[in-house]
Simulated assay, not measured.
Amino acid sequence: MERWLGKVAVVTGASDGIGAEISKKLVNVGLHVVGLARNEEKLEKLCGELKSESGRFYPFKTDMTKEEDILKAFQWIEANVGPVHVLVNNAGISQNKHLFEGSTEMWKNVLDTNVIGLCVATREAVKSISPGFVDTEIGSYCNMNVPIEFAKLKVEDVADAALYVLGTPGHVQVYHNTIHKD
């Protein structure tokens, strides 16, 4: 975890439950965590609890169903904390209703939180970041002219990532493993 010391992580749904716990653990190991959630009071309380840890927690009230809130949050993060290195898309809601009992408003709220909010946050977190080009022969076949600022990964980097995923305990499932060169 040393390589993450002082890096910026964004955790959505950070005011309670899994998001709060992930935020605590990341701050405990030295990351600067921006917690996004609607409940400003709980975010502030969590910030107070984490004041003496090695990292820092930044609460930012954000409604993940509102694109303008998400955009404002990421603009603030870039201007006040720094570039995002880690994004934990944790915010989510569910409705305990059958399809025939649900309302259009309920479905829109679930989709706006669980899908649209996640997509907007992901888009904002990865802007201007290397898409992870790998220095292989396929790049020359495809005439991929990679700008100099997009450093290429080595094939060994990808192989190491694969070994990492395979080396996780059996109860851990890695669904996405995105890597890029710093």
Rank of each mutant, 00 (worst) to 15 (best):
W4S: 04
V11N: 03
T12A: 09
S15M: 05
D16F: 03
G17A: 10
G19N: 07
I22M: 13
S23A: 15
K24F: 03
K24E: 13
K24S: 12
K25Y: 02
L26K: 03
V27H: 08
G30E: 12
V33Q: 07
V34D: 00
R38N: 06
E41P: 01
E44V: 11
L46D: 00
E49G: 02
L50R: 03
L50Q: 02
S52Y: 07
R56S: 10
R56W: 07
Y58A: 10
P59Y: 04
T65I: 07
T65Q: 15
E68G: 03
L71Y: 12
A73G: 05
A73H: 00
A79H: 04
N80Q: 10
N80E: 11
V81M: 14
V81G: 04
G82M: 08
V86Q: 04
L87F: 02
V88P: 01
N89R: 03
S94D: 12
Q95V: 08
Q95T: 11
Q95P: 05
N96A: 14
L99R: 01
E105D: 14
V115P: 00
V115M: 15
V115D: 06
L118S: 06
C119R: 02
V120H: 05
A121P: 02
R123I: 14
E124S: 01
K127D: 01
S128T: 06
F133D: 09
I138M: 13
G139Q: 07
M144K: 14
N145G: 15
K152L: 12
K154G: 12
K154Y: 13
V158C: 11
V158L: 11
A161K: 01
A162Q: 05
Y164F: 11
L166P: 02
G167H: 13
G167R: 11
T168L: 12
T168D: 02
P169N: 13
H171Y: 07
Q173R: 09
N177G: 12
H180T: 10
D182V: 07
